[in-house]
């Protein structure tokens, strides 16, 4: 796994409105960044811009020494994305969403493997979406409110998943309202 992932003077427009500007940070391999700020501050927009889904008005994203957004499919292979929606298909069962049984077990879904996703609760769907991230085997995780709908036990599981990912040199960038136990994470206030 390589890195670091560096942002220089990012700015993003949504329609005619400037959402944020002059955002700079650097996440080293194994590092973590927490995005904080009130509703509408631009946390989701920043995450979408980091993924290459939303266009940057100005600024630069660097992956190591190269321009991260130069080739979007290449950048997409570096990241795992968790949006505010879970992207869970009701017609498929849990094991068809995430094949990797270790990732399912890490989020406490091992026994739900053959269950149709339609029958999952909101928190379980969120865990399934997180299991997909855990199974992705990509260095950079971009997570929009990963703890939404999770109970305390699940948050503990998630913390362990983050720690294992970072121990392998992976990076986590997450927006959150609830306290999230990410040791030595930098905090970016929007």
């Amino acid at each position: 796994m390589t890195g670091p992932f560096v942002a220089q003077n990012l700015a993003v427009f949504r329609g005619e409105r400037l959402v944020f500007r002059d955002i700079s940070f650097a996440v080293p391999a194994g590092g973590a960044l927490l995005l904080r700020g009130p509703n509408g501050a631009g946390k989701s927009s920043l995450l979408r811009a980091l993924a290459g889904l939303t266009k940057l008005a100005t600024g630069k994203l660097l992956w190591g020494d190269e321009d991260a957004l130069e080739d979007l499919p290449t950048h997409a292979k570096r990241i795992a994305w968790l949006g505010h929606l879970d992207a869970v298909k009701f017609a498929l069962n849990v094991g068809e969403h995430v094949v990797d049984s270790a990732a399912l077990a890490a989020l406490g879904l091992a026994s739900y493997r053959d269950l149709p996703a339609k029958l999952l609760s909101a928190g379980q769907k969120r865990r399934l979406a997180l299991a997909r991230v855990a199974a992705s085997n990509t260095p950079l995780w971009l997570l929009d409110e990963p703890t939404n709908g999770l109970d305390t036990a699940s948050i503990a599981l998630l913390t362990a998943v983050f720690a294992a990912h970072r121990a392998k040199g992976g990076m986590v960038i997450a927006s959150t309202h609830t306290p999230l136990d990410l040791p030595s994470a930098e905090i970016l206030a929007l």
Partner: peptide, 16 residues
């Protein structure tokens, strides 16, 4: 588009 899968498809490593 409604359930968020479109973002994942665009980030799947395929071109749009």
């Amino acid at each position: 588009f409604e359930d968020g899968t479109l973002d994942l498809l665009l980030l799947s490593g395929l071109t749009a």
